[in-house]
Design a protein around this nucleic acid. Structure first.
Lengths: 159, 159
DNA sequence: CTTGAAAGATGAACTGG
DNA sequence: CCAGTTCATCTTTCAAG
């Protein structure tokens, strides 16, 4: 964030080198400084300084291994739309669901439902259990869409 | 994959150490062998051999930096359900959409729609453009759900 | 599992806009 | 002063024993 003279704040724009680094690290989160230096034409130290700044600014929020869900015993993936049963109730579904195992992502959305969850479970019956838990825990109704196949996921997207 | 005596194949099950490694690398994709050795109680070399096997078996499919979409100029996220206009047409939507910029994920689903896409764009008008492109390119109708907020995403999930 | 050599990351001192 | 470079040192990785 950069504070302007008029007091407004803005995110410092990324230059071409930053974009190249972000792109490269999206494709390979373990790319070495030497590789990144080669890609950008900068020295390793300069690249390191850049990457550190991108991390500090939150542009790069972290690094993750991409794990095959089937290989770790979670072959069933589903999207679950949830809607509060009582709209007058406190709507703290994300807080309540944050630590429920099997829920990988939680988005609030503009549409029929209030929230959309991405869940992964070992079996259909485990999905039933999880849906029951979600309904009870967050006082919501659910509408699920089973994922049959993931064609691609986390594909790098450039602006 | 392990071939059993009866000829069936199964994925070799992960033991506790493998699970701990996968978990640790999901949380920090750049964890060093020394760190992983500390977590598991194994030597660095043993850990390295394990991680290599997990990578070779495809349990760990790769490593990626987690990038803040807003910080790279993609503040609008949406889920787009797509349904072929003509069910008798060849259904190769994933292939056709694979290289369209802005599409981060593509799943085939069991539900009203055939496929579900996750897209990221710089602006509402860019979303209109992208939806038009998707409709033309894949001969589909679309139904979009805008993401208002991402509460959490990619949370490590254990089996 | 241990070990030594190669590769990578880090920080200090230095250079130019 | 900021961003980048080079160089020396330390850490991590990797393959051989």
């Amino acid at each position: 964030m950069v504070v302007e003279h008029d007091g407004t704040e803005r995110r410092a724009a990324l230059d071409d080198v930053d974009r190249a680094l972000v792109q490269a690290l999206r494709e390979d989160g373990r790319a070495t400084l030497a590789t990144l230096a080669g890609v950008t034409g900068l020295s390793q130290s300069a690249v390191q300084a850049r990457v550190r700044k991108l991390e500090a600014r939150g542009v790069i929020a972290g690094y993750r291994a991409v794990v095959d869900p089937e290989a770790v015993g979670l072959p069933i993936t589903a999207f679950v739309e949830i809607t509060p049963l009582d709209q007058s109730q406190a709507d703290d579904a994300p807080d309540r669901l944050r630590d429920v195992p099997g829920i990988e992502a939680c988005y609030s959305v503009a549409g029929d439902a209030n929230y959309l969850l991405l869940v992964r479970v070992p079996s259909p019956s485990a999905l039933e259990d999880l849906l029951g838990l979600i309904r009870r825990e967050a006082s919501v109704s659910t509408r699920s869409t089973i994922v049959l196949r993931t064609y691609f996921d986390g594909r790098p997207v450039s602006p």
